[in-house]
């Protein structure tokens, strides 16, 4: 694919010129979908990949990487750029040491959805923009792209780059309707309290406390997480209830409230497919409704309606949403 070559070429160009010392991108894994974040250097660009299975948001890796010597180049999809800005706002990454290249993204694919189509042996998955061409079990099938989108891409929040020193965009990216992602939250809001509780009890009870959601979350960058810190008094609390996981997830949602950019990584990595992003998205919707539209990470700014007081803030009795 054309874009893959352009991206690789860009990495090579920056490394060769010495403008950066390292490149943070994705590396091909054993299977067609298994691309994971990796650091590349001038001498080692083996396995470099950019395709429809590069869902991991690379921003969080910069917390450690930007502390190291030298400059680093990072490739960010539009939605990843918001996490990047948020981390710069929180002084977690050093913007000066980073070159940001924004990449075209037509929405990443979910391998689980492909497997759910019933193929036994998948040979090849090709991206045809609108359609995905799957070669499997000796036949070729075309499936509409939107049917295979990763959970984090189904309700894409934006195709605009919040930050980028350069961009690589070959095909036009269609800007999504900015409010469509909240319709799924509205559905939850329409439920009765009991229905909603049941819904979440059912979902959260699947949680195996693997901590993947926390570990991948770009808003979870604490030096010591409260859940790992016995002194915090929370670590034990999260386990002390028969419906134990709710506390863990609710505490986590509160910790990232106002800072979550809705990148959807939590739901993507959840091995139990819990729609964790919906808890955060509910918070985002409430912030929008109560304090005016706010997108964390849209700009580098310490502003966050939940920690800022303005005279225009609504009074508690005016709060919308229950």
């Amino acid at each position: 694919m054309q874009i893959q070559e352009l991206v690789l070429h860009k990495a090579e160009e920056y490394l060769a010129s010495g403008k950066v010392d390292r490149v943070l991108a994705w590396k091909k894994g054993e299977t067609f979908y298994d691309n994971s974040p990796a650091i590349f250097t001038k001498d080692n660009l083996n396995g470099f990949v950019y395709n429809e299975f590069c869902a991991p948001n690379l921003s969080k890796y910069l917390v450690n990487e930007s502390k190291k010597e030298g400059k680093i180049l990072v490739f960010l999809k539009p939605c990843d750029t918001y996490s990047f800005n948020q981390l710069v706002s929180e002084h977690r990454i050093d913007r000066e040491k980073i070159v940001v290249i924004g990449l075209e993204c037509q929405g990443m694919l979910d391998e689980k959805k492909i497997y759910n189509l019933g193929f036994k042996r998948i040979e090849k998955v090709e991206d045809g923009l609108d359609n995905i061409i799957i070669t499997a079990d000796g036949q070729q099938v075309q499936i509409k792209r939107e049917e295979l989108l990763s959970v984090k891409c189904v309700d894409c929040k934006s195709k605009e780059f919040a930050v980028a020193d350069e961009t690589i965009v070959v095909n036009e990216m269609k800007q999504p309707d900015k409010n469509s992602r909240f319709s799924v939250v509205s559905e939850l809001e329409k439920m009765t309290e009991e229905e909603r509780f049941k819904f979440w009890q059912n979902e959260l009870s699947k949680c195996i406390r693997c901590n993947a959601c926390r570990n991948v979350c770009p808003a979870c960058t604490c030096t010591h997480c409260v859940f790992d810190n016995n002194k915090s008094g929370i670590a034990g609390k999260a386990n002390s209830d028969s419906f134990e996981e709710k506390l863990y997830h609710i505490i986590r949602a509160y910790h990232v409230a106002g800072r979550c950019t809705d990148c959807g990584e939590c739901s993507r990595v959840c091995p139990e497919s819990i729609p964790l992003h919906l808890i955060n998205r509910k918070f985002i919707k409430d912030i929008n409704d109560n304090y005016g539209e706010f997108q964390a990470g849209k700009t580098v700014s310490e502003h966050n309606p939940l920690v800022d007081y303005t005279k225009g803030d609504c009074e508690p009795k005016e709060m919308v949403g229950k």
């Binding site: 929180e90 002084h91 960058t221 010591h224 966050n304």
Partner: peptide, 15 residues
């Protein structure tokens, strides 16, 4: 200071 990540949220809420 061993726990602080320097995220600046506390300063913003401090009246």
């Amino acid at each position: 200071e061993m726990m602080c990540t320097g995220c600046s949220q506390c300063a913003r809420v401090c009246p």
